[in-house]
Amino acid sequence: MTDSPMPEIGFGRVAAMFPVKDMERACAFYVGVLGFTKTFENGQPVGFTILKQGKAEIHLTLQKDYKAAPFNIAHIMVDDVDALHELCRSHGLRIVKGLRDQDYGLRAFVFEDPDGNRIDVGQPI
């Protein structure tokens, strides 16, 4: 790094990339259960998909030999964390960290999607 002045760079959208082993199963979960809308897909068979729900955008990439990381890969803010927690529980998803009020001002929990991706969910208290 140099001591030269930092250029003014405007950053745009940043979207999380979720590796998945089975694109059809992943889309069924994110679209059918969580209510995302598919806005783009590429490949035959489909190897890349963009999904949107409200202000959230996620990208799914097909990785047939994928092994999920043992840490959170994304953090999502929601309007009703209790409802999402119940939805995840009712669909048999693994809850990694239970729903509770955190000392940093969020009511939060962590779940695993069908591919084992850990997602931290929060709502301001």
Rank of each mutant, 00 (worst) to 15 (best):
K38F: 04
L87E: 09
F111R: 00
R13T: 12
E86A: 14
V81W: 05
F36P: 02
A68C: 08
F111A: 03
R118K: 09
P114W: 09
A68T: 03
G12R: 01
D3C: 05
G12T: 06
V31Y: 00
P124N: 10
G122E: 06
G12C: 00
K21L: 04
F36Q: 05
F18D: 00
K97L: 07
K67M: 08
R13F: 06
A56R: 06
V110N: 05
V81R: 06
G32M: 01
K21C: 09
G98R: 10
F40M: 11
R89K: 12
E112K: 07
T39R: 14
N72C: 12
T39S: 08
E24S: 13
D65N: 14
G32P: 05
L62Y: 08
H59E: 15
V81S: 08
T37S: 13
S90T: 15
G43L: 02
V78D: 02
P5T: 10
K64A: 13
A16V: 15
V31S: 00
G54F: 05
Q53I: 02
N117F: 07
G32V: 05
Q63C: 12
H75G: 08
A68Y: 00
I50A: 07
D79Y: 09
A15R: 02
K52A: 07
A108Y: 04
R13L: 14
V110L: 03
K38Y: 04
G105C: 10
A69R: 13
G92C: 07
N117W: 03
L62N: 11
D101H: 10
G12L: 03
D82N: 15
D113C: 04
L93V: 05
T61Q: 14
P5H: 07
M77D: 06
F40H: 12
F29M: 01
D22T: 03
A28C: 00
K38R: 11
D22W: 00
I76V: 14
K67A: 13
N72R: 15
K52W: 08
R13Y: 03
M23E: 00
A68R: 01
T39K: 12
R89T: 13
F48P: 04
F18Q: 04
F111S: 04
R107K: 15
A69V: 14
D80V: 09
A108L: 02
H85V: 06
L84V: 14
F36K: 02
S90G: 02
N72V: 15
Q102M: 15
I119L: 11
P7H: 02
S4N: 09
L84C: 08
I119C: 08
L62H: 12
V14M: 11
I9D: 01
V20K: 06
G116A: 07
V14Q: 11
V46K: 01
E112C: 09
E24T: 13
A28K: 08
D22P: 03
R100Y: 12
Q102L: 09
G105V: 12
M1D: 08
V14G: 05
L34V: 01
K38D: 08
T2F: 10
A28V: 02
R25E: 07
R118T: 01
E8H: 15
D120S: 13
Q102N: 12
V110D: 13
L106Y: 11
V78I: 08
A15H: 06
V46H: 01
N117C: 02
A108R: 02
G116E: 09
E24N: 11
C27Y: 02
D3L: 13
A69T: 09
K67G: 03
N72G: 11
G43P: 07
D82E: 15
I125G: 14
I58P: 05
E8P: 03
P70E: 12
E86D: 15
